[in-house]
Design a protein around this nucleic acid. Sequence first.
DNA 1: TGTACATCAGTGAACGCGCGTTCACTGATGTAC
DNA 2: TGTACATCAGTGAACGCGCGTTCACTGATGTAC
Lengths: 249, 249
Amino acid sequence: MFLTQSGALDKMGGMAMGEATKNARSRARAELTQEIKEAGRRQLREVGAASLSLRAVARDVGMVSSAVYRYFPSRDDLLTALILDAYDALGDAAETAGAAHADHPPRERWLAVCRAARSWAQYHRHEYELIFGTPVPGYRAPQDTIRAAARVPVELLRIVRSDRAVHGDATAHAPIPAPIVVDLARLREQVAPELDDSTLARAVMAWTMLIGAISFELFGHLNNVITDYDMWFDYVMGSCADDLHLRRR
Amino acid sequence: MFLTQSGALDKMGGMAMGEATKNARSRARAELTQEIKEAGRRQLREVGAASLSLRAVARDVGMVSSAVYRYFPSRDDLLTALILDAYDALGDAAETAGAAHADHPPRERWLAVCRAARSWAQYHRHEYELIFGTPVPGYRAPQDTIRAAARVPVELLRIVRSDRAVHGDATAHAPIPAPIVVDLARLREQVAPELDDSTLARAVMAWTMLIGAISFELFGHLNNVITDYDMWFDYVMGSCADDLHLRRR
DNA sequence: TGTACATCAGTGAACGCGCGTTCACTGATGTAC
DNA sequence: TGTACATCAGTGAACGCGCGTTCACTGATGTAC
């Protein structure tokens, strides 16, 4: 409920000198909302999501703790805003990399997007944890986050789609069970009309692998196995690209 | 440091009427240590790892909070013990499933182990989060956990190894870069002497996919995409088995 | 353009809470002779 | 087998802390006439 209000304000803040510049008060409000979120991100970096506190955030922006309540009605709403921003920042990184490699071969473009996601995660570890780690207890994602959360997988699908006119199906060893065909049909209808079942399935698997690989690295689950994580990541996501039969040139 | 002490006690407790039954005092100690950990797991279930508190655990076992310090010198040590137990419980589940399907075709045995891991995660969600979710801030895994943490991937490798005498390499589209070959050589030396590079690489990828798929399901990252998670999980881990060229019969 | 009122941002004190950890203690259990 | 001492488990009070949230308030900004 507040989220929509907050979202509206953000948009206003981002409207950058449009006709809706309105008055000093609402400009100040938009700016302070941003400052509070930045302080929240700093807190995140220092103590992690679980123990992020409104009071610490308030101290950081130089306000009294109760003043923050003029901007976010509760700690959870601040968290929600940070989650949304994190999804969008990650989405930006992925889409920017994808656009920058629009005229590269699909496999290269794919790798560029994957690498962008990984390096965003490395530079924003706690924001990454916020969205892909343990869900914050008691917290429920509002509808707003869904679109933002889908940006990376949609970008990955965009690359696969761009390659599909001239190319064959993805690696598939077994027939796909009926219930999954239904799920994939809905997915196809929503975002990727030109992709066949096995390709869609491999794409969802690749998305799972992308986050799995990043999390394994960040959380240390391959600590005594892999030493060269750069190489390993490229190899893994390259293998996914190959399973999807993405063109190399 | 305390861990080794605790571990020793556990082993004593588990020795079940051996010659080391010793006296009433140390038996009581072993039992209470278990009770405290069980209360810890109940707390985990209710509030999650991040806000697990010693005081709540103490209340749960009916002790005064300071008494818990006779058993665990700090909250972190209790957490460490719970983490170790979680790894071992998951390892038990996987190994039991593997042993129970020892004379099934490798692919079926593989799926059985994967399913066992998934259903353990579903029934022990917060313990799963404890080991595969966001690392608890400020917490460092002691050496003890490494062996326990390796049990599932080692079990997966056991299945692949059992199939390798009669079978070929795993799916590999690209040559494996030299630094990874080095990493894989160390892995081979430690746990799987008969496996070639591409098979080892696919096995590590499958391990990543297993945890990635379970986490995606548990944390809701495929919420509007997949509805039949049972089928999807089987399909995904089955595809990994096929990429490894595990025999179907 | 100037005034009167309404809206809003930020203050500072307070409430009630639960936390991790320490400490001096009591009483029960174990050990050495 | 019995006694004297040492070890250990559990108690209860206390320390100091930071938290989320509420509330009555002051003073600045915006709006209507």
